[in-house]
Design a protein around this nucleic acid. Structure first.
Length: 351
DNA sequence: ACATCCCGCCATCTC
DNA sequence: GAGATGGCGGGATGT
């Protein structure tokens, strides 16, 4: 415990992107139904507050759905394309008053989603308790995330800068402070989506300004396979060059100290603490230790104090699960999901 | 210096 | 009233 206390702080290891990757690897399984927020926080070794960020963003694209107090359900990657379709439709309507052409196969999935009360926009909620609440919803991370996605789906531009997104998603004439706040949120959202491979960070060639490119459905299919805790060989093959998100479970250690920042850390020790876990996770030889932990939703773990538990869970995920999935399902899965997504690729995946 | 974004305070909502 | 939720922005970290 205490030995971890003085461990130097690395911001990247604590990023939302890493957290989301870990979250997805933890819950992207067939046997997952309900996700308890406390449980997630405990297993991932973060505060509850961060889990809210994660589920809000994931909910915006249909990966999870709120089921009640403290409870979300895992909907899975298969739910994303229909949601993207709806977002595109909604975005186009808002923008041009046009509904894009929808193919038959698209309609099937589209209808499936519609049957359930999938929360797609705040207005879908039949009862709007108060105008105040509405205005709060408008500002929510969830809505912002959806609008961010719409920008990509409905824009002709291949690249979107955060600046541009901020302006597009805010009424012009916002005060600079409000702007700053929004940009912070967009950074959060962009981190999450890029760690999922939905978008990728790049630069505007001319200006060198940072920008994001929509990668689309096909990329998600790959991402999904990736979050099944693939073995090293596969990890390396499908891991994008840019960020190493999705390979480390690292949110269980040091916190940023308000004042005590470790000066000795000049750069991210790119694969430091995590590399141990990363290696282990991808090393099939170490992958036979303990049986999988039961989905323990009853345990109220105090976020941040569950380091050992986190490691246990992650090791389990990385060992037994890796073998299980890799040996039996991964090969088939890749093909299966590529197939499922192919229909959508033309629509959502640029190039 | 500027870009990025973690962290946790605290207002608000829900039970 | 207590606990859940999540907007918000200070300020630390990264480039």
């Amino acid at each position: 415990m205490e030995s971890l206390g003085r461990q130097s702080y690395s911001r990247k290891e604590k990023s939302l992107g890493v957290l989301v990757s870990n979250f997805l690897r933890l819950y992207n399984r067939d046997d997952v139904d309900l996700i308890g927020l406390d449980d997630a926080a405990g297993k991932l070794g973060v505060e509850r507050r961060r889990i809210y960020d994660v589920v809000n963003i994931l909910e915006s694209i249909g990966l999870v759905a709120r089921r009640g107090k403290n409870q979300y359900s895992w909907r899975g990657f298969g739910q994303v394309p229909p949601v993207l379709s709806l977002l595109k439709e909604e975005g186009m309507r808002e923008k041009f008053g046009i509904i894009p052409c929808v193919t038959n196969s698209e309609m099937v999935l589209y209808d499936q989603v519609r049957e359930e009360p999938l929360k797609l926009s705040p207005d879908d909620q039949e009862n709007s308790p108060s105008p105040k609440l509405d205005s709060k919803k408008e500002k929510s991370l969830w809505v912002l995330a959806q609008n961010f996605v719409k920008l990509f789906l409905c824009s002709d531009d291949d690249l979107i800068t955060l600046d541009g997104a901020t302006k597009a998603l805010l009424n012009v004439s916002q005060d600079p402070m409000n702007m700053r706040t929004k940009v912070r949120r967009l950074y959060d959202i962009a981190n999450v989506f890029s760690s999922m491979n939905l978008i990728e960070k790049t630069h505007i060639p001319e200006t060198k300004k940072p920008a994001y490119r929509w990668l689309g459905a096909k990329a998600i299919a790959i991402a999904e396979a990736r979050f099944l805790a693939a073995p090293a060989s596969l990890c390396d093959r499908i891991e994008p060059r840019k960020r190493a998100f999705g390979t480390e479970i690292t949110n269980f250690t040091t916190k940023r100290a308000k004042t005590d920042c470790s000066k000795d850390r000049k750069h991210y020790e790119s694969q430091n603490t995590c590399s141990v876990i990363k290696q282990e996770q991808c090393d099939s030889k170490t992958a036979v230790k303990r049986p999988l932990p039961p989905a323990d939703t009853s345990k109220k773990t105090n976020a941040g104090k569950s380091n050992n538990q986190s490691i246990d869970v992650l090791e389990n995920l990385s060992s037994a699960h890796t073998l299980q999935y890799c040996n039996h399902e991964l090969t088939g899965l890749l093909g299966h999901y590529t197939e499922t997504w192919r229909t959508w690729h033309a629509e959502f995946g640029r190039k």
